[in-house]
Simulated scan of single mutants.
Amino acid sequence: MITRRSLLGGLAAGAAATAGLATAARALGAPAPAGPSAAGLPLHIVNSSGAYANSSVWVYILGNDGTQQVHVTADGQLKPVAVADNGPDGFTDYAIPLAAGGTTTLQLPPMSGRIYTALGGKLKIKAVADGNGKPALAYPAGWVASDPNYDVLHDCAEFTHTAGGMYCNTTMVDMFSVPLALRLTGARDQTTGTLKDGARARIFSDVKGAEGFDRLVVGDKRVIAPGHGLDSGLFGKDYLAPAIDEAWTAYASKDLTVTTNAGTFTGRVSGDRLGFTGPKAVSFAKPSTRDVLFCDGTLAAPNDGTLGPVAAVLGAALNRSTLTTHPAQPTTDPAAFYQQRLTNHYAAAMHAATRDGRAYGFAFDDVAGFASYIEDPAPKELTLTLTAF
């Protein structure tokens, strides 16, 4: 199974040194695996927002074909990014307009990337030279007040399309703005990301009403993820510290077990480190609030089959506030999630808003299968719907 986390990193090597770009590029996916070429996949864009006409919505398909950063044209061609594509205003215009009415159908070639939707105005995306002199894009970073797209209503879905299938998800890992739903048909008929009626407004209200989270709400445009809020001074850098301390204290005197595909790891805290024995000895320094929210730092998860999966389980448990209360991880009952005062209320609001209870509120949200992610080995078509505001 390919998850969002296994798609990370593909564009980071070509990322420009632009505010917010590293995170945006890192989330765009790994290069498509080598193999026979997949055919273009029909991609249907449905505007059911009720707030914007088709004439005020633009789509951008940006990513990596395994060798270079690319964009997709309205007629389904895969084009390499070029600095010469910047216009007189200094930005590219890779926007694809929607059809005058009804459904817009495009062709999605083999690649990994993001499908951006921009409402009410086009995105300003600059082509630049990366550290190796290769063309790259400064992707939108709506959580950065100085980003040229800060005032543009936009959001995205992520995907990897290969000869082996389609792997895709909606994401709120960086921010939430536009309610999006994905339907993937092929060997199965699957849908994810659909919000309950009126849920966009409830997300804004729930996050604004959570203690310490209120400054993450940017008018009616977006809600910024708390990790980015922390980096911008909008969220407390030590918000989760008491909960993290409580967990480290608890497991100084009792065992914590973490079960992954590699087997069961048994952990105890000694000093500042949580050390595990089991299939392989792994250990973790006490994480910071930022480490937990970004699922990075001491909780970085390498794709090694041992330390990485344990880090993911720990990160998920700390975001969901189940680590101290449940000494056998991962916790699989969603009724136990987000029940403590100090928890990731942003992620909680995202999950409460979706019809299937699945969302990508943080990078390890796929632990125990709670992410808004779907895949199909024999895809026939993908539909991205801008659902009602």
Rank of each mutant, 00 (worst) to 15 (best):
I2V: 06
T3V: 07
R5M: 10
R5S: 08
G9E: 03
G10Q: 09
L11Y: 10
A12M: 08
A17N: 14
T18M: 13
L21C: 15
A22H: 14
T23M: 14
G29L: 07
A30W: 11
G35I: 07
S48P: 00
G50R: 09
G50Y: 03
Y52C: 06
N54P: 12
Y60A: 03
G63R: 13
D65Y: 11
T67D: 02
Q69D: 04
V70C: 08
V72G: 03
T73E: 04
D75Y: 04
Q77W: 10
V83T: 07
G87L: 13
P88I: 13
G90W: 02
G90Q: 03
F91S: 07
F91V: 13
F91W: 12
D93L: 05
Y94A: 06
Y94V: 11
T104N: 03
T105Y: 02
L106Y: 08
Y116L: 12
I125F: 00
V128D: 05
K134A: 14
L137H: 04
Y139M: 09
G142F: 00
V144I: 15
D147Y: 06
N149Q: 06
L153C: 09
L153E: 03
F159W: 09
Y167D: 04
N169F: 11
D174I: 10
S177D: 04
V178W: 00
L180K: 15
A181T: 11
R188E: 15
A199D: 04
F204G: 07
D206K: 09
L216R: 08
V217F: 04
V218S: 08
V223L: 01
I224C: 09
P226R: 13
G229A: 03
L230M: 08
G233V: 09
F235Y: 05
A241G: 14
I244R: 12
I244D: 00
I244E: 01
D245W: 14
D245T: 14
A247R: 10
T249Y: 11
Y251M: 00
Y251P: 05
T259D: 05
T260R: 04
A262F: 02
T266K: 14
D272C: 10
P279Y: 01
P279D: 01
K280L: 12
A281V: 15
S283I: 10
S288V: 11
T298D: 06
L299W: 07
A300N: 10
P309C: 03
P309M: 04
A317S: 00
R320Y: 02
T322W: 00
A328D: 12
L342K: 14
T343E: 01
T343G: 04
N344D: 01
H345E: 05
Y346R: 09
A347C: 02
A348E: 00
A349K: 12
H351P: 06
A352C: 09
A352K: 11
A352W: 05
A353K: 11
D356W: 12
F362T: 01
A363K: 11
V367M: 02
S372A: 15
P377A: 00
L382I: 14
T387N: 04
A388W: 13
